[in-house]
Amino acid sequence: MSEGWMDVAAQADLPADDVIAVRAGNREIALYAVDGEVFATDNICTHGHARLCDGFLEGTEIECPLHQGRFDIRTGKALCSPLTEDVRSFPVRIVDNRVWVQVE
């Protein structure tokens, strides 16, 4: 695998239509499994210091558990107030039923 790619989870460990937290080096990543696809973002909300894995996933939007701001999990785009900054998203690959995230 190319530089910067990290093996973070088995694909079977991802619950369908839900989010989990994983470690990628010293970074905590939120992994989302939606409609057969896997997406990855930083796990900390850009507005308040809340973990997105504790939020509510609806379709391709994650709602922060602290102030109910929502991000698009595909792009990290902030979708509503009180959010003013996007969350970082990361490329994802599935190789041999393992989830790989490019963090750098």
Rank of each mutant, 00 (worst) to 15 (best):
V38Y: 09
N43C: 13
V95Q: 14
G4K: 03
S81D: 15
A10E: 15
L66T: 01
I20W: 05
D54Q: 10
A9N: 02
I29M: 01
P82E: 03
V99T: 03
A24H: 07
P65K: 12
E61F: 10
D86H: 06
R51E: 14
H47G: 05
S81L: 12
V8P: 06
H49D: 11
Q68W: 14
V8E: 05
A10Y: 13
D18K: 15
N43E: 11
I29W: 06
G48F: 07
V38S: 02
V101N: 01
Q68F: 13
A30G: 14
T46G: 07
A9R: 10
E3R: 11
G48W: 09
D54L: 08
L31D: 00
F71L: 11
D7F: 02
E37K: 14
A40I: 03
R88P: 09
A12C: 04
W100M: 10
A21P: 02
V101Y: 10
D7Q: 14
H49A: 07
A12M: 05
R98G: 03
D42W: 00
L14H: 07
A21Y: 04
A78L: 08
R27Y: 02
V8M: 13
A78T: 11
G36N: 06
E58M: 07
E37N: 13
V22L: 11
F56T: 04
V87C: 07
A50I: 04
M1Q: 12
H47D: 05
H47T: 08
A12K: 15
I20L: 07
A33L: 12
G4V: 05
D17E: 15
W5Q: 01
V101R: 02
G76K: 12
A12R: 14
E85S: 08
I73R: 04
A24Q: 03
R27T: 15
A33R: 15
E63H: 06
V8R: 01
D17L: 02
L31E: 04
I29Q: 00
E104A: 13
S89L: 02
Q68H: 15
R23S: 14
G76C: 09
D18R: 15
A40W: 04
D13V: 05
L57D: 13
L79Q: 13
L79K: 13
G59M: 06
T41D: 08
D54G: 03
R70E: 12
G59F: 04
E61W: 06
E37H: 10
R98P: 01
E3F: 13
A16F: 00
S89E: 09
R88C: 11
Q11G: 00
R98T: 08
R88T: 13
C80H: 05
D18I: 05
V92A: 09
Y32N: 08
